Amino acid sequence: MSGYILFSSEMRAVIKAQHPDYSFGELSRLVGTEWRNLETAKKAEYEERAAKVAEQQERERA
């Protein structure tokens, strides 16, 4: 899992709640824009969280 995927899943729900009429493409475009504009430190937080999720998933598969 990547930081972007984690961010995307969280942001998509927020944007969808604010704009229920937006298409999947419109939501994706907005999520991508939000990610590109996100501060580097915040991106790093998402990357760290994603790494922890990936480690947990790997342990569960073992």
Rank of each mutant, 00 (worst) to 15 (best):
residue 1 M to D: 11
residue 51 A to N: 12
residue 1 M to S: 13
residue 18 Q to H: 12
residue 33 T to C: 07
residue 45 E to P: 01
residue 11 M to C: 04
residue 9 S to A: 12
residue 48 E to S: 09
residue 42 K to A: 06
residue 19 H to E: 04
residue 61 R to C: 14
residue 24 F to G: 15
residue 37 N to H: 07
residue 26 E to V: 04
residue 25 G to C: 09
residue 50 A to F: 02
residue 36 R to D: 15
residue 50 A to W: 04
residue 23 S to K: 06
residue 55 E to A: 09
residue 21 D to E: 14
residue 13 A to W: 02
residue 22 Y to K: 15
residue 53 V to D: 10
residue 50 A to E: 02
residue 30 L to G: 06
residue 54 A to L: 10
residue 3 G to N: 02
residue 58 E to V: 10
residue 49 R to W: 00
residue 54 A to Y: 09
residue 41 A to Q: 10
residue 60 E to T: 12
residue 35 W to H: 02
residue 57 Q to V: 09
residue 22 Y to W: 06
residue 15 I to M: 13
residue 59 R to S: 13
residue 12 R to L: 13
residue 38 L to I: 04
residue 54 A to D: 06
residue 28 S to Y: 03
residue 36 R to G: 08
residue 38 L to E: 00
residue 12 R to K: 11
residue 52 K to R: 13
residue 34 E to D: 03
residue 38 L to R: 01
residue 8 S to I: 05
residue 24 F to L: 14
residue 41 A to N: 08
residue 60 E to H: 10
residue 45 E to F: 04
residue 29 R to A: 11
residue 41 A to M: 08
residue 11 M to F: 04
residue 33 T to N: 13
residue 21 D to K: 08
residue 31 V to G: 01
residue 10 E to T: 03
residue 40 T to G: 13
residue 34 E to N: 05
residue 19 H to A: 03
residue 9 S to W: 03
residue 47 E to K: 05
residue 20 P to M: 03
residue 40 T to R: 11
residue 5 I to W: 08
residue 28 S to R: 07
residue 21 D to H: 10
residue 37 N to E: 10
residue 42 K to L: 04
residue 49 R to N: 03
residue 32 G to P: 02
residue 54 A to K: 08
residue 31 V to E: 03
residue 8 S to R: 15
residue 23 S to P: 08
residue 62 A to D: 14
residue 29 R to L: 06
residue 33 T to R: 15
residue 9 S to P: 00
residue 9 S to C: 07
residue 48 E to I: 09
residue 32 G to I: 07
residue 26 E to W: 00
residue 50 A to H: 02
residue 14 V to L: 13
residue 54 A to I: 08
residue 45 E to W: 09
residue 40 T to A: 12
residue 5 I to E: 15
residue 3 G to D: 01
residue 13 A to C: 06
residue 36 R to W: 04
residue 30 L to R: 15
residue 25 G to M: 11
residue 36 R to A: 14
residue 62 A to K: 06
residue 40 T to V: 09
residue 17 A to D: 08
residue 28 S to T: 12
residue 22 Y to A: 15
residue 17 A to S: 11
residue 39 E to M: 03
residue 37 N to P: 00
residue 30 L to P: 02
residue 29 R to Q: 06
residue 19 H to W: 03
residue 48 E to Q: 12
residue 16 K to D: 03
residue 53 V to P: 05
residue 17 A to K: 12
residue 25 G to D: 14
residue 33 T to Y: 10
residue 39 E to Y: 01
residue 5 I to L: 11
residue 5 I to K: 15
residue 52 K to W: 06
residue 56 Q to Y: 10
residue 11 M to G: 01
residue 17 A to C: 05
residue 62 A to Q: 03
residue 25 G to R: 12
residue 53 V to K: 13
residue 12 R to N: 08
residue 50 A to N: 02
residue 52 K to H: 10
residue 42 K to Q: 07
residue 19 H to L: 02
residue 36 R to H: 12
residue 17 A to I: 04
residue 1 M to Y: 05
residue 15 I to L: 10
residue 2 S to H: 05
residue 57 Q to D: 11
residue 4 Y to T: 01
residue 59 R to M: 05
residue 7 F to P: 02
residue 53 V to A: 06
residue 62 A to T: 11
residue 8 S to L: 09
residue 8 S to P: 00
residue 30 L to A: 15
residue 19 H to C: 03
residue 32 G to R: 15
residue 55 E to W: 06
residue 59 R to P: 11
residue 20 P to D: 02
residue 13 A to L: 06
residue 40 T to N: 13
residue 8 S to T: 10
residue 44 A to V: 11
residue 42 K to P: 00
residue 61 R to Y: 07
residue 59 R to T: 13
residue 62 A to I: 15
residue 26 E to S: 05
residue 23 S to Q: 05
residue 5 I to G: 12
residue 47 E to V: 05
residue 7 F to D: 03
residue 60 E to Y: 11
residue 4 Y to P: 01
residue 6 L to C: 02
residue 8 S to A: 14
residue 28 S to I: 05
residue 1 M to K: 08
residue 52 K to T: 08
residue 13 A to E: 15
residue 6 L to I: 06
residue 24 F to C: 14
residue 37 N to G: 07
residue 17 A to H: 08
residue 55 E to Y: 10
residue 12 R to T: 13
residue 5 I to D: 15
residue 6 L to H: 02
residue 28 S to F: 03
residue 4 Y to D: 04
residue 56 Q to E: 15
residue 10 E to D: 04
residue 47 E to I: 05
residue 28 S to C: 07
residue 18 Q to V: 05
residue 43 K to N: 00
residue 21 D to A: 06
residue 26 E to M: 10
residue 19 H to I: 01
residue 56 Q to F: 11
residue 59 R to I: 13
residue 29 R to C: 07
residue 49 R to A: 05
residue 2 S to Y: 03
residue 51 A to L: 12
residue 48 E to H: 08
residue 46 Y to I: 01
residue 41 A to C: 08
residue 45 E to C: 06
residue 16 K to M: 09
residue 23 S to D: 10
residue 18 Q to K: 13
residue 26 E to F: 02
residue 58 E to D: 11
residue 53 V to T: 09
residue 42 K to I: 05
residue 18 Q to S: 07
residue 31 V to T: 06
residue 39 E to A: 12
residue 46 Y to E: 01
residue 15 I to Q: 03
residue 47 E to Y: 05
residue 62 A to L: 11
residue 46 Y to C: 00
residue 7 F to Q: 02
residue 28 S to V: 07
residue 56 Q to I: 10
residue 26 E to L: 04
residue 19 H to V: 02
residue 37 N to R: 12
residue 37 N to M: 10
residue 58 E to P: 07
residue 48 E to Y: 07
residue 35 W to V: 01
residue 11 M to L: 09
residue 21 D to N: 06
residue 21 D to Q: 10
residue 6 L to Q: 03
residue 16 K to W: 05
residue 14 V to P: 03
residue 55 E to G: 07
residue 2 S to V: 03
residue 7 F to K: 03
residue 19 H to Q: 04
residue 51 A to Y: 06
residue 31 V to Y: 01
residue 3 G to I: 00
residue 22 Y to E: 06
residue 34 E to C: 09
residue 57 Q to E: 15
residue 25 G to Y: 12
residue 13 A to Q: 11
residue 55 E to V: 11
residue 58 E to N: 12
residue 43 K to V: 03
residue 56 Q to V: 13
residue 22 Y to F: 11
residue 6 L to F: 03
residue 22 Y to H: 08
residue 53 V to Y: 09
residue 42 K to R: 07
residue 12 R to I: 12
residue 49 R to Y: 02
residue 6 L to Y: 03
residue 25 G to Q: 13
residue 50 A to G: 04
residue 52 K to P: 01
residue 33 T to G: 06
residue 52 K to A: 09
residue 30 L to E: 12
residue 29 R to H: 08
residue 45 E to N: 06
residue 26 E to A: 06
residue 15 I to P: 01
residue 1 M to W: 01
residue 8 S to F: 08
residue 28 S to E: 15
residue 61 R to N: 13
residue 55 E to S: 10
residue 7 F to H: 02
residue 15 I to K: 07
residue 37 N to V: 04
residue 37 N to Q: 12
residue 54 A to G: 08
residue 54 A to M: 09
residue 56 Q to N: 13
residue 61 R to L: 12
residue 62 A to C: 05
residue 36 R to Q: 14
residue 39 E to W: 00
residue 11 M to D: 00
residue 2 S to N: 15
residue 6 L to E: 04
residue 28 S to L: 05
residue 52 K to I: 08
residue 53 V to I: 15
residue 40 T to L: 11
residue 53 V to G: 08
residue 62 A to E: 14
